[in-house]
Design a protein around this nucleic acid. Structure first.
Lengths: 80, 80
DNA sequence: TTGTGACTTTCAGTCCGTC
DNA sequence: TGACGGACTGAAAGTCACA
């Protein structure tokens, strides 16, 4: 695995998390509200926003949908 | 989890796999060659192309880079 | 409202094969 | 060359309590 994840917070994951946070705040949602919409745990969503977790595509798309954007748009915002 | 993944081959993963395959063939690469470029296992890449595996974002981006596209472009091609 | 630690379960991802 | 499988390890996914 190229991303040993002992090395957490890779710049890319931090960037992705930032994009999610930006969209969430723009939508005026709390982590808890977005977590509910995306059907994930609040604390898990928090970790994703901080770049502490390497999200799977399906989960990424759930979060994207909850933010009313496509997965592609989300990655684009994160410049990935 | 909305995608129990015991129920493998969700339409989205199949679509993503198809997009990867399309780009790979367009580049004239074998699964093994792309797997080597993306630094993932050949059998794993095969499963991803068939939609049998829920890829993580970091891995997705590695594969995208190996195909000379961005992660966002890859998701866009898969309409995710 | 969010960050974090501790924990468990499920699966991503590797390595070995065969057809 | 690719489909597909078994067995394995580390990490993604999910839960809860507490600061």
């Amino acid at each position: 695995m190229p991303n040993p994840s002992h090395l957490r917070q890779s710049p890319q994951l931090v960037s992705l998390g930032g994009a999610i946070r930006t969209l969430r705040l723009a939508a005026g949602l709390s982590q808890e509200e977005l977590a509910h919409l995306a059907e994930v745990d609040r604390s898990y969503l928090g970790r994703v926003e901080r770049g502490d977790n390497n999200v799977a595509v399906m989960t990424l798309c759930q979060i994207a949908r909850a933010l009313d954007v496509s997965g592609a748009q989300l990655l684009e915002l994160a410049q990935l």
